[in-house]
Design a protein around this nucleic acid. Structure first.
Lengths: 218, 218
DNA sequence: AAGTCCATCTTACTCATAGTAGGTTACTTC
DNA sequence: GAAGTAACCTACTATGAGTAAGATGGACTT
């Protein structure tokens, strides 16, 4: 595609001369660029050649470090999830009531998906890997998210049957995921409003669970 | 792949001789087989060659009728969505209260995803197409689902700001989608139990909305 | 300073598969 | 039974994932 090929005999006008780089640093750079390309083109349309070219390195390097296209996506997802988790965890510390904890967590989430569009776009793409060998890895990163909610719930509420706790966490996560996707099409909805919508709908059911300490539900 | 080619001079021992078929019928057959292959292998790993082979037809026919791999998936998704919609719509007719309508609708949904695993697996794969040219088509089929909920809500509840109605529908759909995925890993959870979980969590918020007829929410 | 070793990086391929050009065959209709 | 058309095929191109085998630069010894 590029007419004159890549980086011809140009005598390095760029300040950062394309040089050797320790593995850890190069990996970070690759992940950052891959994240951009994946969210720009979508997982399917993104090509490893393009990613390699933008990094300024040849394709086998990507495979050296990440094994496969899926592996690269998985690394990107893992990082984004870690960031999202960190943000939300930080947001809930210091909340005194369960309601406040939930509200803060949701607020952090909806802010994240607005400020870090690329990362969020990536997290949505994990669904593309269902049915592939990487599905196991996906399961693990997903569990991170629901575990956070589940842990919060056991902190503030009675434990209850672990079944119900898991299911509840999934419902909350699913509701927010979809609401977040909807928000992408509605720029005029602020993160605060989204938080209120979600609280408004979900809090009723959650609060009820808290006030029924030992009754088993089917 | 097939050593001796496809259907050599074998004198048609099969009752259904591979014969010419009117377009509509062939399309249905293609969709049915594609659905199976997609859900078996996942969208990425599924190959058009395999689908064509299983149908007993050559690859260009698939392209003649569906234009692209995405187009084929889209056709499959469209059909599954239509079926799901039909089942849920049928389930809610005759419900006298909003609560009963929701419960019946959820019950139909969770039964569907258990009985029609392949179709449901397919609907989940639509996410794989985000960021591709087919994304518009996806949007449309998705709207079908939320519209149904939104319509139900406006029937039983006050209209309220259309914004809130849309957002609410998204939340309900998202919650159920994720809960359904969770159910796939927990065979011991019956559709009835899943329905109860969802009702338990969501009904509180929805009922509250019904009882606040004209107050505007941010 | 020269030699050795390993991590970083490259060129130049293979192979699977999405998508297509152009021709062929069977069914229908007059 | 000739003409027309819808259903169908063989044989191809193009693109992009993944790999084999080798080149290069820096760090560390002696």
């Amino acid at each position: 595609m590029s007419p004159t090929g890549d980086t011809p005999a140009a005598p390095a006008p760029a300040p950062a001369r394309r040089k050797r780089m320790p593995r850890a640093e190069r990996e970070q750079q690759m992940i950052a660029i891959a994240e951009a390309v994946f969210s720009e083109r979508g997982y399917l349309a993104a090509s490893m050649d393009e990613i390699a070219e933008r990094v300024g390195v040849s394709k086998p390097m990507l495979y050296e470090y990440f094994n496969s296209k899926e592996g690269l996506l998985l690394a990107c997802i893992g990082q984004s999830r870690a960031e999202l988790r960190q943000v939300t965890e930080q947001a809930v510390v210091g909340a005194s009531t369960a309601e406040e904890a939930l509200r803060r967590g949701l607020g952090a989430f909806f802010s994240f998906i607005r400020e870090r569009r690329e990362s969020w776009s990536l997290l949505r793409h994990e669904m593309a890997l269902i049915g592939t060998p990487a599905a196991d890895g996906i399961e693990e990163t997903r569990r991170q998210q629901t575990d956070l909610i589940a842990a919060l719930m056991s902190t503030y509420f009675d434990g209850g049957p672990s079944f119900a706790v898991e299911a509840t966490a999934e419902v909350v996560v699913g509701a927010c995921e979809r609401l977040a996707i909807w928000c992408e099409r509605h720029d005029e909805v602020t993160p605060e409003q989204a938080t209120e919508y979600a609280m408004d709908l979900l809090w009723g059911g959650l609060a009820r669970r808290a006030s029924a300490p030992s009754s088993e539900r089917p």
